[in-house]
Amino acid sequence: MVPLSHYLALGAVVFVIGAAGVLMRRNAIIILMSIELMLNAVNITLVGFSRQWGDLTGQVLAIFVITVAAAEAAVGLAILISLNRDRSVLNVDEVNLLKW
C-alpha cells in the first residue's frame, strides 16, 4: 500500500520541475509542455487524496483539469502558430511588443 505522502511528494517534485521549466526555457512550445506537466502534477495530488479519503470528488476534479488542459493546449498552440507565422519567432524573450 502506497502512503498518501508519497503521492504528495511525487506531485510536488513534478510541479516544481514544471515551474522551473516555465521560468527557465526560451522556447515557447516547451513552456506550454511544462504547463502541462504542472497540471499533471496537480492531478497526481488529487488522485492521491481521492484514494486516501475514498471519495471520487478528486477524480472528477482531475477530469475537469484535463479538460482545461486540452483547451489551454489548443488556444496556446494557436497563438504560437499565428505568432510564428507573423513574426517567425518561437523564443519568448524576442516577443516584446508590449514591453516599454
Binding site: R25, R26, I29, L77, L80, N84, L90
Partner: peptide, 18 residues
C-alpha cells in the same frame, strides 16, 4: 502537429535558457 507546422528545428541551435 503544431511543431510540424512551425519551423522548430531552427531553435535547436539557439540558446535554450534565459
Amino acid at each position: 502537429f503544431s511543431i510540424m507546422l512551425m519551423n522548430a528545428e531552427v531553435s535547436v541551435r539557439l540558446r535554450q535558457f534565459h
